[in-house]
């Protein structure tokens, strides 16, 4: 996040540079009695400063795909490259924000949680860490809660800490696995707005998994629609034009219906 402030060139390259390349990726994992194919030959490119959404019903392998980008799994077939390098292990250049609130370390305060990742990865000079962590918590609106332990925070605040922690690492790409799914509807909407504001401010590259079409349209600049069992690419759509203000618009609704049709077939289009 802070790197962009120092590098004016980024704005010029906006949306041009390919950051992440996913090429024909098939993902399989073993359960006790079967081999499950989660995705089948999925290909897509994520460009810098994209808000790239993986959208699909449960069981389409979108979370598995994200975990693979994070480096927790490796593909059975195909390749994933970040900046031209093959992804083969987890690393702090791809910070992940999970859905679960317990992703924060309960034994560390909010500020320590943010500093923890920076300290352990050894990517930042020691004397800058505290300052950077403070700035990151201020950015997500938690300056008053820096010294509080996570169990005292609400769900939305915990997710903000996780976002701050991830952004403070200045990752090449921010990975979010349904981060707002466990929040109530009002908080979720506020968090979506805040995430967009933050993106406006910092211009990070985002990869976001969701099963809500509405969330995908509002947050995304690009939406990858996946079919279920196993996940295959159904479409890759541009969604730059829509945000919260357009939510009731005819165009927004039409776009929503279009995606709905892709996911579920034309017969059941009314609901999300």
């Amino acid at each position: 996040m802070l790197a962009t402030e120092k590098m004016p060139g980024v704005a010029v390259r906006a949306g041009v540079q390919t950051l992440l390349q996913v090429d024909g990726v098939t993902l399989q994992y073993k359960t006790r009695d079967r081999l499950v194919t989660a995705t089948y030959r999925v290909s897509f490119d994520v460009k810098e400063q994209d808000r790239f959404i993986l959208l699909g019903p449960s069981g389409c392998g979108k979370s598995t795909l994200l975990k693979c980008v994070a480096g927790f799994l490796s593909p059975t077939e195909g390749t994933m490259t970040l900046d031209g390098r093959v992804i083969d292990r987890p690393g702090p250049d791809r910070m992940m924000v999970f859905q679960e609130f317990d992703q924060l370390m309960p034994w560390l305060t909010v500020l320590d949680n943010v500093m923890f990742a920076m300290r352990r990865s050894g990517r930042f000079p020691k004397n800058e860490i505290r300052d950077r962590a403070r700035r990151a918590t201020v950015k997500v609106g938690l300056e008053r809660f820096q010294d509080v332990y996570p169990h005292m925070l609400s769900g939305g605040m915990k997710q903000r800490v996780a976002i701050a922690r991830a952004l403070a690492m200045e990752p090449r790409i921010l990975l979010m696995d349904e981060p707002f799914a466990a929040l109530d509807a009002l908080t979720r909407r506020r968090m979506q707005e805040e995430l967009l504001e933050l993106w406006d401010d910092v211009r990070f590259t985002l990869m976001f998994v969701t099963h809500s079409i509405e969330e995908a349209i509002i947050l995304g600049s690009r939406i990858l629609v996946l079919t279920p069992h196993p996940g295959q690419v159904r479409a890759e759509l541009d969604a730059t034009a829509y945000s919260h203000e357009h939510q009731g618009d005819a165009e927004f609704m039409a776009f929503n219906r279009k995606i709905n049709g892709m996911l579920f077939g034309m017969q059941e289009t009314a609901h999300d």
């Binding site: 994070a70 927790f72 987890p90 999970f98 679960e100 992703q103 990742a117």
Partner: peptide
């Protein structure tokens, strides 16, 4: 220890 916490740790390169 929850899978999420382990993954968060591994995410930092631990």
């Amino acid at each position: 220890v929850s899978q999420t916490q382990r993954m968060a740790g591994r995410n930092y390169g631990l």
